Measured scan of single mutants.
Amino acid sequence: PPDDERKKAEKAARSGNEEKAREILERLGYSEDEARELAKRLR
Score class of each variant (00 low, 15 high):
16 G>D: 07
4 D>W: 13
7 K>E: 12
1 P>H: 14
36 R>M: 09
15 S>C: 11
31 S>T: 13
33 D>Q: 11
34 E>M: 08
26 E>Q: 15
8 K>R: 12
25 L>Q: 02
19 E>R: 13
25 L>K: 00
41 R>C: 13
30 Y>G: 02
4 D>M: 12
9 A>F: 03
28 L>C: 09
2 P>F: 15
15 S>G: 10
26 E>K: 12
18 E>P: 06
17 N>Y: 09
3 D>I: 12
28 L>H: 01
6 R>F: 15
10 E>T: 11
33 D>S: 12
4 D>H: 10
18 E>M: 15
29 G>K: 00
12 A>I: 09
14 R>G: 04
14 R>V: 11
17 N>D: 15
37 E>Y: 05
16 G>P: 02
23 E>Q: 13
34 E>A: 09
38 L>R: 02
32 E>C: 05
12 A>M: 11
23 E>W: 01
11 K>C: 14
21 A>T: 04
32 E>M: 02
42 L>P: 02
12 A>L: 12
42 L>I: 12
34 E>N: 04
15 S>R: 11
32 E>F: 03
5 E>Y: 08
2 P>C: 15
18 E>A: 08
9 A>K: 03
40 K>H: 14
17 N>T: 05
2 P>D: 13
3 D>W: 13
38 L>T: 07
5 E>L: 15
12 A>V: 08
16 G>A: 04
40 K>Y: 01
26 E>P: 00
21 A>V: 07
9 A>R: 03
6 R>V: 15
4 D>Q: 12
15 S>Q: 13
39 A>I: 15
36 R>W: 10
27 R>Y: 08
41 R>P: 00
19 E>G: 08
14 R>Y: 05
38 L>A: 05
34 E>W: 02
17 N>Q: 12
13 A>W: 03
19 E>P: 09
25 L>F: 14
1 P>G: 14
6 R>M: 15
10 E>I: 14
40 K>G: 11
13 A>H: 04
42 L>V: 06
34 E>D: 11
27 R>E: 06
3 D>L: 13
27 R>M: 09
27 R>A: 13
40 K>R: 11
29 G>V: 00
32 E>R: 02
20 K>S: 09
43 R>M: 15
3 D>C: 15
9 A>C: 08
3 D>M: 13
23 E>R: 13
22 R>Q: 08
39 A>T: 03
41 R>I: 09
11 K>H: 15
23 E>F: 00
21 A>I: 12
42 L>S: 04
40 K>D: 14
5 E>M: 13
22 R>N: 03
2 P>K: 13
13 A>D: 06
21 A>S: 05
27 R>K: 15
17 N>G: 04
21 A>D: 04
6 R>P: 05
19 E>C: 15
39 A>Y: 01
11 K>M: 14
2 P>A: 13
5 E>T: 10
5 E>Q: 10
41 R>N: 12
19 E>Q: 12
27 R>N: 10
17 N>H: 09
18 E>G: 06
10 E>D: 05
18 E>Y: 11
13 A>S: 04
30 Y>A: 05
4 D>C: 15
4 D>P: 12
26 E>Y: 00
15 S>V: 09
36 R>H: 08
20 K>W: 11
14 R>E: 07
36 R>T: 08
26 E>M: 15
24 I>W: 03
33 D>N: 09
1 P>S: 15
22 R>K: 08
1 P>D: 15
26 E>A: 05
34 E>I: 06
30 Y>Q: 00
8 K>S: 10
19 E>M: 13
8 K>G: 07
20 K>T: 10
14 R>W: 04
19 E>I: 12
25 L>A: 01
11 K>P: 03
27 R>I: 07
29 G>R: 00
4 D>E: 14
27 R>W: 07
28 L>V: 01
37 E>G: 04
27 R>S: 13
26 E>L: 12
15 S>T: 11
40 K>P: 07
22 R>H: 03
16 G>F: 05
25 L>W: 06
23 E>Y: 01
18 E>H: 06
21 A>E: 02
32 E>Y: 04
21 A>Y: 11
32 E>G: 02
2 P>M: 14
3 D>S: 13
22 R>V: 15
39 A>M: 03
37 E>C: 08
24 I>M: 07
29 G>S: 01
28 L>G: 01
35 A>S: 08
21 A>P: 02
17 N>F: 11
10 E>V: 13
19 E>W: 04
3 D>V: 10
28 L>F: 05
15 S>H: 11
13 A>L: 06
42 L>W: 15
35 A>K: 03
19 E>V: 13
36 R>L: 09
4 D>T: 13
41 R>A: 07
18 E>W: 10
22 R>L: 07
6 R>S: 07
34 E>Q: 08
9 A>M: 04
24 I>V: 03
38 L>Y: 01
23 E>I: 10
29 G>N: 01
42 L>C: 08
36 R>F: 09
40 K>L: 02
25 L>P: 00
8 K>N: 12
30 Y>I: 04
18 E>Q: 07
42 L>N: 01
30 Y>R: 02
11 K>G: 08
10 E>H: 08
26 E>T: 09
29 G>L: 00
11 K>V: 13
24 I>R: 02
35 A>P: 00
23 E>V: 09
13 A>I: 09
23 E>H: 10
2 P>S: 11
43 R>W: 11
11 K>F: 04
42 L>D: 03
40 K>W: 02
21 A>H: 03
29 G>P: 00
14 R>D: 05
2 P>Y: 14
35 A>D: 02
7 K>G: 08
39 A>S: 03
32 E>H: 06
10 E>P: 05
34 E>R: 03
29 G>W: 00
15 S>Y: 03
17 N>I: 05
29 G>Q: 00
21 A>R: 05
35 A>Y: 03
19 E>N: 11
10 E>A: 14
3 D>Y: 11
25 L>Y: 10
22 R>I: 14
3 D>A: 11
28 L>P: 01
38 L>K: 04
36 R>E: 10
41 R>S: 07
26 E>G: 07
1 P>N: 15
43 R>S: 14
30 Y>F: 12
9 A>T: 03
24 I>A: 04
32 E>L: 01
42 L>F: 09
42 L>M: 15
6 R>Y: 15
32 E>P: 14
16 G>Q: 05
14 R>K: 13
31 S>V: 00
23 E>P: 02
1 P>A: 14
13 A>Q: 02
35 A>E: 01
35 A>M: 04
37 E>S: 07
32 E>N: 02
40 K>T: 07
21 A>C: 12
11 K>A: 15
38 L>M: 11
30 Y>K: 01
13 A>V: 05
31 S>E: 05
11 K>R: 15
30 Y>E: 00
7 K>V: 12
9 A>P: 06
5 E>I: 08
41 R>Q: 13
16 G>Y: 04
6 R>A: 09
24 I>Y: 05
7 K>L: 11
42 L>H: 02
27 R>G: 12
16 G>R: 05
20 K>V: 13
3 D>H: 11
8 K>M: 13
23 E>N: 07
4 D>R: 11
33 D>W: 04
19 E>H: 09
9 A>N: 02
33 D>Y: 06
36 R>I: 10
8 K>Q: 14
18 E>I: 15
38 L>H: 04
3 D>Q: 12
1 P>Y: 15
37 E>P: 00
2 P>L: 13
25 L>R: 02
2 P>W: 13
41 R>W: 03
36 R>K: 12
37 E>H: 07
42 L>K: 02
11 K>I: 15
25 L>D: 00
5 E>H: 07
28 L>N: 02
15 S>I: 08
13 A>T: 05
23 E>A: 11
23 E>D: 08
7 K>T: 14
19 E>L: 11
14 R>A: 10
30 Y>N: 01
1 P>V: 13
31 S>D: 07
13 A>P: 03
21 A>L: 12
1 P>T: 15
10 E>S: 09
12 A>G: 04
36 R>V: 07
3 D>F: 10
9 A>I: 06
34 E>H: 04
32 E>W: 00
29 G>F: 00
17 N>S: 07
32 E>Q: 07
2 P>H: 14
29 G>D: 02
16 G>N: 05
11 K>T: 12
10 E>Q: 11
4 D>A: 12
29 G>I: 00
34 E>F: 06
26 E>F: 00
36 R>A: 10
32 E>D: 06
26 E>R: 12
25 L>S: 00
34 E>G: 03
25 L>T: 00
4 D>G: 10
1 P>R: 14
12 A>N: 04
19 E>S: 11
24 I>F: 05
43 R>I: 12
43 R>H: 15
10 E>F: 03
28 L>K: 00
41 R>L: 10
12 A>T: 06
2 P>G: 13
12 A>F: 08
43 R>L: 14
22 R>T: 06
26 E>N: 04
12 A>K: 04
16 G>T: 02
25 L>I: 01
5 E>G: 09
14 R>M: 11
7 K>D: 09
3 D>K: 09
34 E>Y: 06
21 A>N: 02
23 E>G: 07
41 R>G: 04
17 N>R: 07
